[in-house]
Design a protein around this nucleic acid. Sequence first.
DNA 1: AATGAATGAGGTTTCATTCAT
DNA 2: GATGAATGAAACCTCATTCAT
Lengths: 229, 229, 229, 229
Amino acid sequence: MPAATATLPDRKPVARQPKEQRVAAILAAARDEFELQGFEKAKVAEIAARVGVVEGTIFHYFRNKRELMVRVMEDFYKDITADQQNGIKGVKGTRNRLRYVIWHHLRVISDNASLCGVILRESRGLGSELTADVQRFNRKYTNCLNTVISGGIEAGEIRLSTSVSLVRNTVYGSIEHALWSLLSGEHEIDVDAYADELLQLVFQGISADESALEKNEVASLIRKLGRLV
Amino acid sequence: MPAATATLPDRKPVARQPKEQRVAAILAAARDEFELQGFEKAKVAEIAARVGVVEGTIFHYFRNKRELMVRVMEDFYKDITADQQNGIKGVKGTRNRLRYVIWHHLRVISDNASLCGVILRESRGLGSELTADVQRFNRKYTNCLNTVISGGIEAGEIRLSTSVSLVRNTVYGSIEHALWSLLSGEHEIDVDAYADELLQLVFQGISADESALEKNEVASLIRKLGRLV
Amino acid sequence: MPAATATLPDRKPVARQPKEQRVAAILAAARDEFELQGFEKAKVAEIAARVGVVEGTIFHYFRNKRELMVRVMEDFYKDITADQQNGIKGVKGTRNRLRYVIWHHLRVISDNASLCGVILRESRGLGSELTADVQRFNRKYTNCLNTVISGGIEAGEIRLSTSVSLVRNTVYGSIEHALWSLLSGEHEIDVDAYADELLQLVFQGISADESALEKNEVASLIRKLGRLV
Amino acid sequence: MPAATATLPDRKPVARQPKEQRVAAILAAARDEFELQGFEKAKVAEIAARVGVVEGTIFHYFRNKRELMVRVMEDFYKDITADQQNGIKGVKGTRNRLRYVIWHHLRVISDNASLCGVILRESRGLGSELTADVQRFNRKYTNCLNTVISGGIEAGEIRLSTSVSLVRNTVYGSIEHALWSLLSGEHEIDVDAYADELLQLVFQGISADESALEKNEVASLIRKLGRLV
DNA sequence: AATGAATGAGGTTTCATTCAT
DNA sequence: GATGAATGAAACCTCATTCAT
């Protein structure tokens, strides 16, 4: 009796999904929206629309928009941090390990340019509500580089005088700048090439190679005296 | 639509200033406000209050808030670009010139941390209306480093294979990261020390002849010491 | 940007109404306000106050003020167009049909003088954002007259040389002028009298056969009188 | 000594024009701006810029923007009223005189479409500040038609029962509608053709031609009786 | 006569968040 | 669990008009 079926009232298929799936769907939609619009301009209504629910539903699962963003970032950081720690296990030698960290970060940045752009932008706000959270995640993620450099110093491959924070600033700062170029449409990033070049620059720059070391110390002394006279 | 024909408000006697002074005062106030709040959160009403005029007066001189921000940035970039170009004139030798560029930028960043923070933040916006303007100013400013590196390559002091954009990313990225540390209250920047360390890392990292490095420095120092005694 | 995360205002218990009722109430209030103030001077705040909600609620249902105005006009045009098409069905004979169109339009204008004034005023704007919408609605509404005139020409009752657009301009222009007189307080409109006079002028003015004019009318009247006695 | 001339301070040629010329120049500029923007959107600053003076100067010669508009309209109405009165002198016969009035108005509308559009639009405002003034000018201008019709009635060429205001509404309303078509870019106005057609319609419509008269009266009576039964 | 700096009220629109249903 | 109606603060920008110089 097809006619009978036709007269049944329309009943929306209220896809009542298990909590986990709903949360995952919202997070995915949120990530898309944040990537497209940035945090401030992203609209909860739009995220809800992407999932196919109404605004109110979002607030069943997340206290507020900020928490949504934090969760998106947290998930992302967890992923890449685990991936990094996993990948570096098998890599031996300071130079190789440094290359791995650089290469891995470039890979991440290159594959998630939009999201990385959002995260970095939001983490620089003066009073941004997100600063603290991002920095916490980031500290853990970048800790790997610290370990590599410290290890290199202990192993005598890297100059004793090397400032770990300088290296961290330099490596991540360099790659971050490459990201801005990418996002502004200037050019793509050739991950392997950039990794090699940056590694070359940085590793040669901090290498403890005997002859270099000597020269460096002399150079440093010269500068100090120069400023004195 | 302003009240047509009807209102005859009592006019307060206002301190009338020549255009130039007002513009300067507004720009100064705007800079303060932008530094404090960032572009989006900055309120024109607050800027006006700082100057001691009403909002309308601001728009007598600047078409809109964006133009105000652009002018603040433009003035700033003009200053530091001129200063940089002026200062580098007397500096000879690739190493010294590179150090100057690094040192000068650190000086600028250190002395104008708040403003630099705002500018950098606003220049990374996806569809931010300010992106284009900042990038135009910035290209001119950072061109100096390009010249130094290119010169160094031609002079044979820097490896032929060196990518200028890599060096630019690395130098400015490193310093930018130091700025974020500064702004997040982690620690101050010791301009001279950071300049030395970054120079050391970068120059050694891109140096062509590792042993020729310090010869000139030594000779130069000897002359200076000779004059001293 | 609404106060983020910070404000937890006390929420007044609001009478919650189904969408349809609210929309209707808003449209009614909007019409009142537009009639009173015209489009530009009408304030959304005032419309909201008339409904008894806050401004934001209005924008929950209508994208912007313009859409509100368009909807008011659309509803009005739908009403009168349907009414006109309905009423003309039973009217036979070119002269009678023309009289009906004139009379109906006068009735509409007379009963909705304020709204018609607003609509006509807004539809004449050079770059007015409403021009296009009104003209679309209006074309459909005035099409009825086109049909009548064309029919009359085909039936040989109206001179072949008659320009339909001239007749349309003349009929609607004449009535529109009567509206302006009404709105400027000069005098009322006697719908039936004006309809007769205008019909007389126009139909005699475009009539093909000047003597055939009243024959049908006489016959018809005789029949009616016959029935009466 | 050309050098001497060169070192003289720049002296702006403050073209201090006689009052009459200034006023004329301002009125011309105002008319241009009003035509382009309409009254509300027209900016005094723009009018001043067109003349090459600053805003303040405008207010030396005109109390306010409204007065400026009134003067533009007044000048225009004076021109066309004089022209009309002048032209109609030599025209004899009701039909010819009516054609002249129609043709002249079409000529005016066609040659000054933009300004006429503004004037008509502004004169329809509910509480428009300009309504009263325009109506005063307009009454004088349209009086000519009144005279023609009244004359025609007295001369027995036009039906006694003819309502002068109906004819006025119809003639001016028809032409006004043609103007809106013109301004909305639909089509040009062929002044002579439109004049002929409108004259034909109106004059035949109000003609006292014996046979027509009789028929009209009968028809009118029929309608009244029809409504009665 | 001409300038042009200063006024200042005013209204549309956005959107995260709540909570009654 | 899901809905979606309601909130309400907040801020940019316009521009006719004045009046000290």
